[in-house]
Design a protein around this nucleic acid. Sequence first.
RNA 1: GGAGAAAUGGCAGAGUGGUCGAAUGCGGCGGUCUUGAAAACCGUUGUUCGGGCGACCGGACCGGGGGUUCGAAUCCCUCUUUCUCCGCCA
Length: 424
Amino acid sequence: MLTINQIRENKDEVIRLLKIKNFDASSIIEQILQIDLERRNLRQSLDNLQAEMNKTSEMIGKLFKEGKASEANLAKEKTGQIKEEIRLKNEAFSKAESDQHALLVLLPNTPNPSIVPGKSAADNEHIREGGKMITPNPSMIPHWDLAKKYDLIDFELGNKLTGSGFPVYKGKCAVLQRALISFFLDEATEAGYNEVMVPLMVNEDSGFGTGQLPDKEGQMYHATADNLYLIPTAEVPVTNMYRDVILNESDFPVRNTAYTPCFRREAGSYGKDVRGLNRLHQFDKVEIVRIEKPENSYQALEEMVSYVESLVQKLELPYRIIRLCGGDMSFTSAMTYDFEVFSAAQDKWLEVSSVSNFESYQANRLMLRYKPTGEKKTRLAHTLNGSALALPRIVAAILENNQTENGIKIPECLVKYTKFDFIN
RNA sequence: GGAGAAAUGGCAGAGUGGUCGAAUGCGGCGGUCUUGAAAACCGUUGUUCGGGCGACCGGACCGGGGGUUCGAAUCCCUCUUUCUCCGCCA
């Protein structure tokens, strides 16, 4: 979330930037500032009362020590009134604080000033494209039919075991999944990311830290008996490793990568985009997560984009890079690049990665700070993450784009992992 | 799952009702000494909120939450976590 200081000091700027996301913040911000003023007044008088109380208690202690019990008892009687005042002020202060917090949480992250406004995906900025484009032709078979033809993915079996959106990968396709995971992790390690393996369930604090809670509560699977959430992305546990952490400047760069399955309820998304591997409740993904000093975060974002680009290039997939417009960006992001690969038989661009800079929005929730060398004050760090990459749509594109009459060709870069170069 | 013990500053570890934000040691930082380093010695060393241009002043924080008390790291309740023993177990 945004900090109260950001809002207090740059009110108009914040309102202006949030308009880019089609969010009218003016009335919320007015309320916040009003509560903030009240809150600080209460804080001050509360502090004064407590100081008075401390002094009195200290005096009483001294009197008892000096054997002046009657004077001490007299002083004691006066404390009741101060105590009551403290109780009342404290109540009011707590209320102001929680009211303020409740309002702050409603504000999305401010987009980077260079973000174009826009209403929907149609207004996104096209950055560049690459790879060899494939012209779709009617003889191409969509991946769900290829999956059946070569016995690669059993959606019905997943239905039986769990429900829709939980496919069973079989034989060479199971191996292909494993190969992609290994390939992505090896590439990330090579690029300087530190591999970690993290819990697939997180607590409420973690969900709040990265911004899934409270607003996206309904999108996560919730194990209510233990109040734990199945992670929708490795971003949640990997970023939360740094919750309540104060980094030293020498700790940078902080770069982690993790493979995890991801679980998403996808509540409310029915319809045509859910066919085959296009949208699942459980899928595999390798994520890259960085923590940066504010002045380096946009350079880091560009590096991450280049890195993800190198992956789709090695996989020999036609791709395009898009920068999301204000209207299409997530609540928590300040700038997001999406990667889409072309899946020929569907004649469709499929989103396979989303790379974002959250600036200090998550860091403020996480209390993730760093201490610049030689300075006394801590500052909020910047957090970034990106998919590198999400598997199902990559698999869909590989199956569809690399199909031949006799089978499916495995991309060169994966052969050393799969130990086969053809599925038939 | 059952029984017991514990949780204090970056770490180790004192502190069982009254200047305790907290002894001491280690570590870190600065300095003296040294050609340089080590050793030794001296100094310094948490987070956070509010007020002030500022020197600075005040509040909060000893696992989390609540309570008793004029006053709590210290007493009580509760939750969480860790350790030891027993049981179960990939």
